[in-house]
Amino acid sequence: MHIVYPVVVSALLFSIGVYGVLARRNAILVLMSVELMLNAVNLNLVAFDVWLRDRLHGGQVLTLFVIVIAAAEIGLGLAIVLAVYRNRQSIDVDRLRDLSETGASEEAGPPEEPVGVGEDADREARP
């Protein structure tokens, strides 16, 4: 097996994941693209482990660790997405711009109001 094949496939998958993270608006689709990027890294690790014939199997063990970390990440990420959805009835990442400077967002475009306003006290203090 030429190592360049899996490595090129993983590079292409990674850049597809980059495109997805940058271009998608739905937060769940962004999470899916992050998973694509993590899978690209996993394929890289397995390919180099096979190439280097690591006696400790560092590449494959690290792949397993990355899979576990991806599971933890997707669990926490979905919990955060659901909390955002509960508070504002929208998971559109383009509209979650409460943390941007008001001047900068006015320059970038018309400021969009969040669709739903929850009952949290900290967001009522928002300017």
Binding site: N42, L43, V46, D49, V50, L64
Partner: peptide, 10 residues
């Protein structure tokens, strides 16, 4: 692809 690369467990 992992199977082809002999990484069965992964």
């Amino acid at each position: 692809g992992y199977l082809v690369l002999t990484a069965e467990f992964v």
